[in-house]
Each structure stands twice: as structure tokens, then as C-alpha cells.
Design a protein around this nucleic acid. Sequence first.
RNA 1: GUGGCCAUAGCUCAAUGGUAGAGCUCCAGAUUGUGGUUCUGGCUGUUGCGGGUUCGAGUCCCGUUGGCCACCCCA
Length: 413
Amino acid sequence: MQLLPGFRDFYPEDCARRNYILTKWREVARRYGFVEYDGPVLEPMALYEKKSGGELVGQLFDFTDKGERHVAMRPEMTPTLARMVAARERDFKKPLKWFCVPQFFRYEKQQRGRLREFYQLNCDIIGEASPAADAELLAVQIDMLRACGFTEKHFVVRLSSRNAWAQFFAERGGKAEDEYEFFQIVDKAERTPPEKTDAALQKFGLTAAQVLEFMRSKTATAELAPILADLAARGLGAFVEIDYAIVRGLAYYTGVVFEVFDRSLNERALSGGGRYDQLLSLMSDGKVDLPALGFGMGDVVFANLINDTPAAKARMDEWLASERACDVFVVVAKEERRAEALGLVQQLRETGHRTDFPLTAAKVGKQFQTAENLGARLAVLIGDEWPQVKVKTLATREEVLVSNEELIAHLAR
RNA sequence: GUGGCCAUAGCUCAAUGGUAGAGCUCCAGAUUGUGGUUCUGGCUGUUGCGGGUUCGAGUCCCGUUGGCCACCCCA
């Protein structure tokens, strides 16, 4: 049986690499005072129809369950988050700093950096309108990458704002109701031939040249300047650049938007997000009106970039080595001592040592080979020396004789 | 959803239309209690699947499934 397209098996090696990324994400999020939450993997279809409608619904894994309910595997977290916050908003002090590392499902054609199933870190700050929240969110995002060995040479946050474009549009006679259409043209302008952009902009009396000129300006607006100053004060200024080419596709973004890219531009965006100050109100039918912002960072592109970046790869490999399955391997050199060996194995395990041993009789050489293969640090040999045992450091091949009663204490030293 | 390239052993790949191979991995040995090397031996294939052309198809043609890449989209 083949895997479904876009889905992955996680063999132990793959699982360890995935866990490395998820562990780092959790570490950094907690370091920034974010708390973890989660929701259902399966949601009513209506939850997603309410927010986005049309095209995005076509990319859902949806079906009718045995109770005739139209349901969908979650493709994103924001609707669930909005529901959760709206339901118990008064229980939480503001601002909320919540994160989640959900697995998402999207029915898209897979390609590099995009599967039908993936993990995505989501960090959101709810209930804080000041630019300090934007800076905090960008800072945690930057540190997600720094914690994995990436530097300003490897990635950059491209910071922009829809308000900048809204102002640009209004100053040139654009009407508010045309704003979103205009945003979408701008969003595509970077990768569309200027003639096509010109044609699309004609109805607004604008040209591609005007849009491209503004897009390339690096001047921070009054909205973005305090965010840059905040990040500079944290020593993170080198990780951020103003880049008005970033607009993002979705309708609900209201102000600051950003995307993180690898400097080499070999990969898709590593992460992206922005402000969605109206969304909670929309999702709760006006019951809850809180400013909000967040970002999502997927594991697939992230893993690609780690593999392509020697410094980050080395850091991951170091972590993987420290997570080895076995620390102490008990060698049963004399089968007659198996009972004693089992007693020691149990003691080792109860005192927290990752311990393994041969389940059936095997030659000593074979057992050492197994210890080696498991990446064990120590071998404890039990045989003729009993009641003493040999403790061997595999890397140095040094052996010491220790009384079996003192083994645990010996290892603690 | 559209297009291009690809599919042979567990993995990486060979094989002018003429008997399916190599390396690595894995397993077992090299006289009984010490591991990464070495040596010897061994296992594995409906050549992704289904049709067609041909005396004969891994090889050519069609379809299909899957993979990679790009477009679209990107919550």
C-alpha cells in the first residue's frame, strides 16, 4: 500500500528530527511567555466557511461523518483560536500570548516545502494594539530561527503594512471598497510582468511603475518605525527589513504584515503573519472585539532550511545525539547471570538511565556491537566477576570494576 | 487544477529491443568474555500497475498510480 500523496511516515529517525523542531519551537515560545493551547483536529465545515469562503474551502479535507455532519480536518488554527477566545474571553487577562503546534491538513498538490499534512507553529497575541506587541511577536519569531542556529546571514523578516498601501491608494484617489482588490494586485506585482500589472491598475488610474517605486522604498512609516526601534533595542535590528512587496493574500489582515525568508531565496516563505484586528469580532458576530496578531511557521520549509544550512544541521545533529535511545547497555556475558543482570537493568531504569540489554543469549562481541549501534555511552558487563561488574566507557574503551551494589552511585558521579 | 521530467533489489544506481546486474545496507560465519576495520558466505526483484507493438519489451507506444520540479494558491 502506498502512502496517500502528501502524507509522511515518520520512522524513528524522521520522528527525532520532527521532535527537534517542535521541541525548539516550544522552548522559545515559553521563553517568551507564550502558553500552549490546542483544539480539535476535526471541526465543523461551517467554521471555515464563515471566515474565508470560496477558494480556501476547496483546499480542505472535508467529509460527512456518520452523524451526517459536514466536517473538515483543520487547515489552520485561527478559526479555532477565535472561537476559543470568544467563548471564554473574560477568563483571561490581556494580552493573551498563546501558542500551538498543530498538525494541519490541506488538499493541495504537493511540491518542495508543501505537503498535504504538516506541523505549524502558531503564536498569537490577543488584546494588545500597541506596536510593542508587533515587535514582541517578531522577536519571538526571529528567535525561533536563532535557536536553531540561523543568523542574519541566513534569513530576514520582510516587514510591511497594509496601512501603508491603504494610504498610498487613498492619496491617489482610490476608494476604500476597492482596497482589497488593489492589495491583491500589489501582492502579485513582484512576480507579474509590468504590462499585466499596468492593465490591472488602469481602472484605478495607477501604473505599475508607481506601485513598484513605492514597493522598493525602504522608508518606515510612522506605524512601522516604533517596531523597528523596539527590535533594534533588543539587538535584533539586523534581522528585519522594510519591504512593501509583502502584502499577503488573505482578506482579513488589517495592518502590519510580514514574512520570513531565507536569504538565498531557495525556499518558500518560512513563516508569515500579521495583524487581524477585526477577525475576532467577525468570527464571534461582534461579541468579542479585540485587536490581535499572529504568525504561522511550518515544519516542512523549516526542515529544508536546516538541511541546507551546515551550522543549523550541526546543531540539530548534536541534539539528536543527545537524545539517543540508550545510555547504558547491559552486557550479559554469562547467561547464568541473566537474573542478576535483569535486577541491575531494573535498578538502572528506575534511577533514570536509558538502559537496554539483549533479550536473548548472544555472544559478547555481538552485544558490544549492539551497544555501539544503539549509541550507548556505557556498557555494564555482568559475568564471572560477579558480585562485581565491569563498567566500560565505549568511546575510550576504559573499564573499571565496580561492586554491583555501588553501580548506581558510581554512575551518578 | 495545468504543464515538464522521472519510476529497476531495503537504499544509490547499471543493463545497443535479445538470459535482470553492481555497490552499500541487512543476516550468518572467521575455535568458546569485548565493539566501529578486514575477509568469506547468504537473502531479496511480478523492472510501480494495466494494456498494446514485436519472434522477443526494463528498453518502444497508450493509459493509470506515485514521486520530483514549476505554475496556480499559499489560511
